[in-house]
Amino acid sequence: MSVIYLLLTLSIIVAVVFFAAFIMAIKNGQYDDSYTPSVRMLFEDELVKKTNEETEKDI
């Protein structure tokens, strides 16, 4: 029974460490997306063209 308490305690400690590392990564900007905004303008034209073509087909 003492092994269960030990494993439970260790798993909670590991979970807290990973959660703290995740919070630190977010605060340091690890997950900021700097690539998509610069490429978004290349894909917006395709969406506009498809929308225009679809509306012309309906007419």
Rank of each mutant, 00 (worst) to 15 (best):
D32Q: 13
T9G: 06
V17R: 12
S11G: 07
K57L: 09
A15Q: 01
E54Y: 09
E56T: 09
P37M: 01
M41P: 08
K49N: 02
S38A: 02
S38F: 10
L47W: 05
I26K: 15
P37S: 07
A21C: 05
E54I: 14
I13H: 01
D33I: 14
T51K: 10
D32F: 02
A20L: 15
A21E: 08
F22L: 11
I13W: 02
E56A: 13
F18L: 14
A25M: 11
I23R: 14
K57H: 01
V17N: 03
I13C: 03
E53G: 11
S2H: 08
D32G: 01
M41R: 12
L8Q: 10
S2A: 06
K27M: 11
T55H: 03
K49C: 00
V48Q: 07
L10K: 07
A21N: 06
Y35H: 00
L10Y: 02
S34E: 08
F22I: 03
I26T: 05
E44H: 00
D45K: 15
I59C: 02
M1C: 03
K50W: 06
T55F: 09
D33G: 03
I12N: 05
I12Y: 02
V39C: 00
D33K: 12
P37Q: 03
L47Y: 08
V17Y: 04
Y5T: 04
E44Q: 08
Q30N: 07
D58Q: 09
F19P: 04
N52G: 07
A25L: 07
R40T: 14
V48A: 07
E44L: 12
T9L: 07
A15F: 02
V16S: 04
A25N: 13
L10P: 00
K57I: 08
L6V: 03
T9V: 04
T55G: 01
